[in-house]
Computed example of a mutant assay.
Amino acid sequence: MPLDSKDHPLNSLGFAKPPAETRVVVAMSGGVDSSVVAAQLAEEGYDVVGVTLQLYDHGAALAKKGACCAGLDIHDARRVAEEMGFPHYVLDYENIFKDAVIDEFADSYLAGATPVPCIRCNERVKFKDLLQTAKDLEADCMATGHYIQRKMGATGPELHCAADAARDQSYFLFSTTPEQLDYLRFPLGHLPSKNETRALAAKYGLPVADKPDSQDICFVPNGNYASVIEKLRPGAAEPGEIVHADGRVLGTHDGVIHYTIGQRRGLGIGGLADPLYVVRLDVDARRVIVGPKEMLSTRTIPVREINWLGDAPMTARDEWHISVKVRSTRPPREAILRPLSETEAQVELLTAEEGVSPGQACVFYETGGSRILGGGWIWRGA
């Protein structure tokens, strides 16, 4: 006779019932991380349902093996599910993904920004539509292979950096809302390194144990943003001038989309005594403005579309002393956050940063701690 739920100890996912009575949808990308999450939960006896999203190029993927990573990834996720004995579904989210992620990526890039589509995918697809699908499947929670930690705090679940700083994905998950965080689980966040994940994959005998990590944005296979933009927006690569900040015309270019803020190499303006960097993109005038490195430094960053994860409302204080990341690859820097509204603020860096670019995220961290306090989008040059 089953124990009454109030008398049952919490299971590893935080529910007061046996694992067998706890349904968990696992978002499976076909990679080693999400495969290990699914396998581990299945071995622990949970009612696991694997779901893989078909996001792009489905026809190409099926027509030729290896033609597109999407087809291979779906195949790998299915093999893992068969191996571990739980159901697996593939959902066609191609139109949703195009509308919510790819189109904005193209438009943002054309506007001279440097977008981060992985954040929008988590925000608008995985943690919105897929999460709703998990609820429709009557799952108690949804688990992913992200390297981030969910910890219970005084006022509810909190988002914390992964134990392994080298794998931490907090920069890409700042827009997770408190409601989503209540439903999500991240079983890998506490692991000290990726080696432990691969060891678990080998332990479970998973066919993806040695599969290499994906390095690129899924729909930008070789990191060549410009070629993708040209396909999405024909005629986008219009030529123009490369202009020094002092007004001198130094050369011509084949399209603003080939340049990003902070770029130094490949400018096509050799023979100058001092190195120059892209300091601004004037999309309307089709101009790439270059200048010395010091012109890239900024201390004031306007941020909007803020998702706040602190215990007190962001507007409860005039100032918050926090740390921020303005690029995923950079360490957090001390800053002062000054709220302008519930979703807008100005961030003042205590030490100037170079190459702060519109379209990137500015993610807020507790100074000296691991907690993520939210973040927002950098929206214009400071």
Rank of each mutant, 00 (worst) to 15 (best):
M1I: 02
D284V: 15
T197K: 11
F105D: 01
Y147L: 07
K6G: 09
E123D: 11
L191V: 10
H244V: 02
A166Q: 05
E230I: 01
D274V: 07
V49K: 10
V116N: 15
A316W: 06
P313C: 05
V228T: 02
R333S: 08
E83H: 11
T329C: 14
G359W: 00
V347W: 10
A382K: 08
T343S: 09
F174E: 00
V80N: 15
G112Q: 02
M84C: 10
R380K: 02
A81P: 11
S29E: 01
T114V: 02
C161Q: 12
G189A: 06
D210P: 09
K203M: 10
Q180P: 06
A139Q: 03
A27C: 08
Y93E: 12
D136K: 14
N307Q: 07
V90I: 12
S328E: 04
A345F: 00
W308A: 02
G71T: 11
Q180G: 05
Y147C: 06
S297W: 07
L337W: 08
A361D: 04
T343N: 09
L232C: 00
E294F: 11
A163Y: 07
Y277K: 09
V116E: 05
G31H: 12
P332N: 14
I257A: 11
E83R: 12
E21T: 08
I336V: 13
D33M: 07
L349H: 03
E366I: 01
A100D: 01
E158Q: 12
Q169C: 00
S341A: 03
D254F: 03
G66T: 15
Y183F: 08
K6W: 12
S35K: 12
Q180Y: 01
D129S: 14
Q215T: 15
A361H: 01
P2Q: 13
D284W: 12
S328Q: 09
V356C: 14
Y171E: 13
V36W: 07
T176H: 00
A166C: 08
P358T: 13
P178G: 07
P234N: 14
P117R: 00
R79A: 15
D318W: 09
K194I: 13
T52Y: 07
L131H: 04
Q132M: 03
A143V: 13
K126C: 00
P187C: 07
H75F: 08
G271L: 06
S328M: 01
E44H: 03
L340N: 02
Y225D: 08
H58R: 12
T52H: 08
P87N: 05
A226K: 05
L10C: 13
I102L: 09
